[in-house]
Design a protein around this nucleic acid. Structure first.
Lengths: 161, 161
DNA sequence: CCTGTTTTCTTGAACGAGTCAAGATAAGGA
DNA sequence: TCCTTATCTTGACTCGTTCAAGAAAACAGG
C-alpha cells in the first residue's frame, strides 16, 4: 500500500521519502504507537533511522493532517492515522492500552461546555479512563492490594470516581 | 485560613508542615497553578523551598485527595484544590489559560463510551479546547495569519503551517 | 537524463519537567 | 522531653522531546 502513502503525501504537499513511508507503515500496523515504538518498528525497513528523524516525520504528518497526536496524561505522546472523524479514546490506567471510541454525539466539538467563560470552543477532547479487559483479569487474580492501589492512584494520581 | 488547611491535612493523615501549608495557600490563590508557579509563590512564605519538596508535597496532596492533577496536552501539569465534584476544563490553545466548567451531566463518569471495548470505565475526562477571550481579541487585532495558524494546529501539533 | 534548488534527513547537543536516593530535620505520640 | 517516623533537603539523574548545522536526497526544469 505504499502507493497510497505516496499519494497521500503528495496530496498534502510533502515529498515522498523512505523515512516517511516507513513511519506511515508502522502507524498503519500500530494504531496508537508512541515515538519509540515507531522508531523501533520503522527500523525494520530503514535500519539507520534516528529518533530525531522520526520526530520530524511525525511533526510533518501531524501538521499536514495525515496523523494525529494524542497525549494521555502521564504517558508519552501517541500517534494515530485516524484523523478527521472526531473519535475519542479509552485509556487503561494500569497498562496504558488505548482503544478508539466513536463519538456518539457527532461532529466536533461534539460537546458544549455549560458555561464557556468567554472561550470560543472548537474541540471537545474526551478521554475515558478505566481498566482494560486484561488488567481487570490480572487485578482480580493477583493481590487485592494492587487493585486498591490502581483505584487510589492510577496513572495520573487522582482517580476520583 | 491556615487552621483549615491544618485540619484538612490531619483529617487525611498527613502531618502539618510549613511547605504543605505554603503550597496549599498558593493553590488557593491560583486555582490552576503549575509546579513552577507554586514554587515561586510558596517561597514568599518559605524562601528556601525547593522544587523537589514542592513535587513531594503535591504528590502527597494528590494521593490524599486534597488536590487534583490535570495535564493538558503539551503543557506542564497543573494542580487544583477543587476535588470531588467531577468538573471539567476549558483550555486556551493560544495562551494555555484554564477555566473550570461544571459537569452538566452528573457524577463521574459523566459520559459513557458508545462501545467500551471491554474496558471498565470510571472516569470521563473532558477538555474543551479553544481560545480564551483575551486571545480572541489579540488574534483578531494582530495578523490574520496568526489566527489561521492557531485554528489549524494549536498548541499541540507543532505549529509548522 | 542531468542539474539546481529546496526540502528532508542526519548527527550531536541541549532542554524542561519530573523522578530517585540518601542523609538531615522536624512533627506528634508516649 | 524523648523517640519514632514522616517529611524535607540536596544533588544527581532520567526520560521524552526539541534545537541547530551540515549532508543527502527529492523533484521541477531544461
Amino acid at each position: 500500500m505504499e502507493t497510497t502513502w505516496a499519494h497521500q503525501l503528495r496530496e498534502v504537499g510533502l515529498r515522498v521519502t523512505r523515512p516517511r513511508l516507513s513511519v506511515l507503515d508502522v502507524l498503519a500496523g500500530h494504531p496508537h504507537a508512541d515515538a519509540d515504538t515507531i522508531v523501533t518498528g520503522a527500523r525494520a525497513q530503514h535500519p539507520t533511522l534516528s529518533p530525531q528523524t522520526v520526530y520530524g516525520v511525525l511533526d510533518a504528518l501531524v501538521s499536514a493532517g495525515l496523523a494525529r497526536r494524542i497525549e494521555p496524561a502521564g504517558a508519552p505522546a501517541l500517534f494515530e492515522l485516524r484523523v478527521g472523524d472526531n473519535h475519542h479514546h479509552l485509556v487503561c490506567r494500569s497498562c496504558g492500552a488505548v482503544a478508539d471510541v466513536d463519538c456518539a454525539v457527532g461532529a466536533a466539538p461534539c460537546l458544549s461546555p455549560s458555561d464557556a467563560a468567554g472561550f470560543v470552543v472548537d474541540e471537545a477532547e474526551v478521554v475515558f479512563w478505566g481498566l482494560c479487559r486484561d488488567c481487570q483479569v490480572s487485578a482480580g487474580a493477583q493481590a487485592p492490594a494492587q487493585s486498591v492501589q490502581i483505584h487510589e492512584h492510577g496513572i495520573r494520581g487522582g482517580a476520583r470516581a
